[in-house]
Nucleic acid binder design. Sequence first.
RNA 1: GUGGGUUUAGCUCAGUUGGUUAGAGCGCCGCUCUGUGGAAGCGGAGGCCGUGGGUUCAAGUCCCAUAAUCCACCCCA
Length: 518
Amino acid sequence: MALVNRPQGTFDQLPEGSPKIEAHTRARAQRYVTDVAGAMLERAGAQLIVTPLFEEAEVVRRGVGGSTDIVRKEMFSVFYQGEHGGYVLRPEGTAPIVRAYLQNGLKQLPSPLRLWTHGPMFRAERQQQGRYRQFHQVDYEVLGSEDPVVDAEAIALMVDVYARLGVRGTRVKLGSVGDPEDREAYNAYLRDLFEPHVARLSDDSKDRLTRNPMRILDSKSEGDQALIAELRPEALLDRLGVEARAHFDAVRGFLDAWGVPYDVDPGIVRGLDYYRRTAWEVHHEHIGAKSALGGGGRYDGLAEMLGGPRTPAVGWAFGVERVLLAMHQEGVEVPDGERPLLYVAALDEQFVALAARLAFTARANGVAEYAITPRKPGKAIGEALKKGARYVAFIGSDEAARGYVSIKDLDTGTQMPVPVEALDDILARRLSLRSGNIADIVLELLLTDTTVLNGARLAQTVVSDAEVTRFARAFTNKAFLQGLTLPGAARAPEPFAGLTPGRSKSAVTLWNFLDPTL
RNA sequence: GUGGGUUUAGCUCAGUUGGUUAGAGCGCCGCUCUGUGGAAGCGGAGGCCGUGGGUUCAAGUCCCAUAAUCCACCCCA
């Protein structure tokens, strides 16, 4: 049977260590980026909103715009039971959020309302570097204000998120697409300008002349650029109406005051119809042809286009995959997940159930796994090291007979016996000790908790000379000072005094400790 | 939608002017090894050579088609 592949242009997000893993397909890294961004946005007062992955096609058609490439050729339709449902997989997050805002009466929440979301978006394009049919975005939207300060704040926040994620070398390209009448007039101006020279335009640009003349200006065709150099068209930015101009200048004023770096780019053309006035993109130099990490803008007219009351708003989105690509290019490390705390290995089949149970309860304190089949100690240690665990616990016949487990601290090499009933307490206590050294933890426990001390029956350990000395001295002093009456207390100092420390890290030294029966 | 590259083991790749049973390293599993740090040695599993046609006595190798994948264009995150 031939293997069935994933749909074209999609990718699987994979666990660490997967053979074919790439920067953007690391599940942990994907989650890291959305977690970091989400935490920052929530600190800025944004609240999480989640909308369905599919919407009425009308939401997208009216919001994004019927003349855009997204609506014309990149929509995934949703069918059910063979019938077209009139739905499409969402190609972007803003229109659905505005739809949800209107439908759920969010207008009554304090205004302006800051929202954020994250999740997959779908566009039926041919795949290439940084462009996928299902990709992931983090969205931030501010609804209910036309104050330029929220435009500027949104940009500043976006820049902060990239910085927090460790992405350097970002450039904010800031422009304004003006009010609708500004853009209409400008498009007419461009058409008049290029119409006489239509024969010299590239095929792509001939098409652009009717659909979206502004796109001609950033054509990659040399012929087009030569023509543009001759005609020297004015920039839209220089033909803004009074209000749009004042708004743009005010946004710049805030950014300047806050020291947020940006480049004014008269050529900024956003691909979605709903943008008004402020528009920006954030680019990164080293991620191939798709250098835009994200973009945003003001969309004061969108709510009305969806049938709601006028609701001025501004927002942005960035592509998680492109940010991951940028992070990868810059060598930014994604922090490791939670380090495994404990790996429990039974040395014999009959102790596997106990090993599993110890792992279960240890999970209150961290990541804990167990070996499902018996392990030799050396193999168990190797596996624990591979998993990156701090401690490995052994349960063999010696341990089981006396009711303890052997805990080896893989960072320090120290191994200590721990009564089974004290294991969870010990794991919890490691948090209060900076070193996490198992010897320190056990010592602390013995010195502070006499019930555990009374329960201790045997000690077996592999320690250095220094640790033996320290352990013995501390124990003796404490017992003396507190006048503890312990089983075998009278003999307590002696085992330490007469102790022969392990000859090497791998040597095993046994001695009796606090066991009146021995 | 357009153009170019790639496709041989789980992964990275060899594979001679077409010629017998398609290889290596890594990874995985086992043993050496009945209780202590990622070792080593030995062994094992794992392949419709992307798929379908064609040329030939003979195809991993040559031709055609197709698919997947990567990159670029359009456009966008």
